[in-house]
């Protein structure tokens, strides 16, 4: 082992560390590499909605759900729900488990000991979620349209709906995932404490089945959480107007969707800011 004898700096006016934005971009690249090199993450959060779509398409017949909206079969109905579920898997689940593990194994502590701007760490997570969620949505929609005969939204208005529901949903899943990462006390318990509750929530929110077929009290509980609203918002982008009366409220409820998702983003942000720590509590 040897190093050239270069003199350490003693000039207090040396150049400032690189900007949070630049480091954030570099972190995004690193986070994406880490995400896609982890086979478990790729299979159980990135590819899961696409696999489920394939299973649903094979298992369930293509019969109509409602006479009034004859063009909507189960696969057409479930595709927007799986989009919403996929967003939660890639954002909430990936971050809640990933950050809990990084806290447990000392990654966060090490990063905190460098001049990396703390903001850059979060920019990296956000960038990773954004790229992965977009790629997942693109794959899911491509598979749905090419193999399972799902009709994609037509017209800019519906794509705009998709865009804002996607943006708000991803943001909510991200802030809530960062906040929730403080709940598991160790890396060992992280997966169980994240995957279990999320899976239940996805079921209750109508991601895997027709929401209005759930008992009313379940619908009421699900309406507290963001996923139900994300799925409903996605349906409003993907299903024809004649389906709108079939929704629980008889309407797409764009106003309430936006409001509730923003409320969850704020709640997640407060939770994240209040609970985020760079070291294990017991260390």
């Amino acid at each position: 082992m040897s190093v050239t004898t270069d003199h350490p700096h003693t000039d207090p006016h040396r150049t400032a560390p690189p900007s949070a934005l630049r480091v954030g971009l570099a972190r995004t690249v690193v986070e994406l590499k880490l995400f896609f090199r982890e086979k478990g993450a790729v299979v159980f959060s990135f590819l899961l909605p696409i696999a489920l779509l394939g299973i649903f398409a094979m298992v369930f017949s293509n019969g109509e759900l409602y006479e009034e909206a004859a063009s909507v079969d189960f696969v057409q109905y479930i595709t927007p729900g799986l989009l919403a579920g996929g967003i939660m898997l890639v954002s909430f689940q990936t971050l809640a488990i990933g950050i809990a593990m990084e806290r447990d194994d000392g990654t966060l502590k090490r990063l905190r000991g460098t001049p990396m701007p703390p903001l850059a760490y979060f920019l990296g997570k956000i960038g990773m979620v954004l790229v992965a969620a977009l790629a997942q949505a693109a794959l899911l929609l491509a598979a749905a349209a090419l193999f399972f005969g799902v009709d994609l939204p037509t017209g800019p208005e519906r794509w705009l709906t998709f865009a804002w529901v996607f943006a708000l949903g991803t943001t909510a899943g991200t802030t809530l995932g960062i906040g929730y990462s403080s709940v598991p006390k160790s890396a060992k318990s992280a997966e169980a404490m994240v995957v279990g509750p999320l899976l239940v929530l996805l079921f209750l929110s109508g991601v895997f089945l027709v929401f209005t077929e759930l008992p009313e009290w379940v619908q009421t509980i699900a309406s507290i959480f963001p996923v139900k609203w994300m799925a409903q918002g996605m349906r409003s982008a993907f299903l024809p107007d004649e389906f709108e009366p079939m929704e629980a409220a008889g309407s797409w409820q764009h106003g309430p969707i936006a409001l509730i998702l923003v409320a969850w983003i704020v709640a997640g942000l407060i939770l994240a800011v209040q609970t985020f720590h760079w070291q294990r509590r017991d260390a």
Partner: peptide, 16 residues
């Protein structure tokens, strides 16, 4: 962060 740029830390038990 300027101060952090002037120090180097090798901790016990860091992974990642």
């Amino acid at each position: 962060l300027r101060w952090r740029a002037r120090i180097g830390i090798v901790l016990q038990n860091t992974g990642g």
